[in-house]
Design a protein around this nucleic acid. Structure first.
Lengths: 327, 327
DNA sequence: CTGAAAGCGCTTACAG
DNA sequence: CTGAAAGCGCTTACAG
């Protein structure tokens, strides 16, 4: 049987109330009593039951974190930073991999509510998963607009898209194509495409965007990329909306005997540690993943503390263009 | 205020006991009552408080998962599978990024105990983090021996190391070097080195293993790799103990003007989705990450259910050699 | 400086 | 088929 507070009390010769007091450092307690209690806790290897505490306190110090998939380096890195920062603040993280599926996300949200999480950090493409039932639940969205009253943290996608496109143009690319994920929703990431299109038009060029419908099926992605080359034999610049996509473009280009960067220039997006290690030559727009995590947590904690006054509705963090050998 | 069971009871005109019964599908309940209760729950948006349930049931359905760092694709992918499988079995996962630091691991273990997790899946290099206090805690280790009574799930590291080395030999490499992480501990991953050394000896070659002391500092890794080339100008084959390391070797070799695979052949280890996408040409030994996750969970659940009888002390899953363009 | 009592939201014998 | 009571392990007024 696990030791409980009354066991400690018995051994230390005090009441459970007193044990609780030394545990929480509340009220006056004689040095002697305190030491006796500590000794008793050591003796029977006592650890407080945080479940019981949470029930009373109506505070779990639990944060729900919904990401599409930690095996994707961007989300894996984001998850790492979020959890690490939370741990340093004494918050615990419940991990949820949603695969962007709305059914899973809804289930996860319900699970998080049942588990009384203090707040949720959500990286999800689906609006409407936080509804009526979760009105009072503190939520912060990363990289996606979820609803008018949920703050969003993202990096400066417009600037990133602009820098990527302008780089390709400055390198003399004539036929630049953009490949993006699902475009249906008003996500900040969509601004990457907007920026691409605007820059293209500004330079009198025709923007062409290909959409990858499924983010999780590499074969579908490969097919789309193959189509890009088939339908645009003159393509000499590609801006891919994430590094994995860019890597697939690199592979397909090599398969087709194209010399990079001579025949084709490629810019990716994300600049994760993993992609920079595995494909260090890739030119890419690096997101400030750690500050995204930090900012999201700062905002969420404010919401949790009830400081709704000075919470920005949207925070946009700067990106950094990393020039490699693919441009 | 959040709705609770007594609110539902009041509205449905029954006792809390009855509400609990319909919630848990226990005992006989008239159809009418059941429907009234459901209607009441809908009406006030009631969700059961799992914290309160857990307190009573002494069962949280929580699993602690300790990994070094989810930003590393191998652990990110493992974490994804573990969490996904757990979710499908109605278990929730508390994420812990330990960075392999024993102080962090100990803190995480204590946190998990306080939170009454039903069990822990640990990928850690440090023995002794599960001590006396956690005797009764179900634990399963992945890829590392933690103690004699903690089951270990790993892939067949010896076979992987053997296949990698034999491949290099069969490709006519004369001077093959192995680069590994910290070697101090008796981890299954150490078998990769053992296998390398045995195969080398078998073929009358001198095994040379370089050790990377810090897994998290890319610069230290780069320095060690640079040293490998400096000290062994004749090297024509390198077996790196993970894909990120292999990628660094590729980069360094290119920097030194070596043609891969003509002048130098490289084999990595892990074969994650991310590394196979970002560096598809890499020859590597692929670990069965999903089955590792599945197996670890199977074993952990058995421990949780108290079925200690038929739990193997060690499970070893088959690896797969993926030949790319680096050999 | 310390303890007895009540309660956090739930569930399960027990009784009817 | 249903309800009143006790209890999961803790904490906090309240009283001394």
């Amino acid at each position: 049987m696990k030791a409980k507070i009354s066991d400690v009390a018995k051994i230390a010769g005090v009441s459970p109330t007193t044990v609780s007091r030394v545990l929480n450092n509340r009220g006056y307690i004689s040095k002697e009593t305190r030491e006796n209690v500590y000794k008793a806790m050591k003796e029977i290897n006592y650890f407080p039951n945080d479940i019981a505490r949470s029930l009373f306190n109506k505070r779990t110090n639990l944060i729900g974190m919904i990401v599409p998939q930690t095996s994707n380096p961007f989300f894996g890195e984001l998850a790492f930073h979020i959890e690490s920062i939370c741990a340093s603040l004494n918050y615990k993280v419940l991990l949820c991999n949603s695969l962007n599926r709305i059914d899973k996300e809804k289930k996860y949200v319900e699970m998080l509510i049942r588990n009384q999480v203090d707040g949720v950090i959500a990286v999800t493409y689906n609006r409407g998963i936080f509804d009526s039932e979760s009105q009072s639940l503190p939520v912060v969205a990363v990289d996606h607009y979820l609803s008018t009253d949920i703050p969003t943290v993202s990096s400066d996608n417009y600037s990133g898209g602009k820098q990527a496109t302008e780089l390709l143009i400055s390198k003399d690319c004539k036929h630049i194509i953009h490949i993006n994920g699902p475009l249906k929703l008003e996500t900040p990431a969509n601004l990457r495409r907007k920026a691409y299109e605007n820059v293209m038009k500004k330079y009198g060029k025709q923007p062409i965007t290909y959409e990858i419908s499924n983010t999780f099926d590499r074969n579908i992605q490969r097919e789309t990329i193959s189509k890009v080359f088939e339908e645009n034999p003159e393509v000499d610049g590609i801006f891919a909306s994430d590094d994995l996509l860019a890597a697939l473009v690199v592979a397909e280009a090599q398969k087709r005997g194209k010399n990079i960067p001579r025949d084709l220039k490629i810019v990716g997006y994300d600049g994760t540690e993993a992609s920079q290690t595995l494909l260090p030559g890739l030119t890419t727009v690096q997101q400030p993943i750690e500050s995204i995590a930090q900012t999201a947590i700062d905002i969420l904690l404010k919401e949790i503390e009830g400081e709704f006054s000075n919470i920005p509705r949207e925070i946009c963090l700067p990106v950094k263009l990393l020039e490699g050998q693919t441009t």
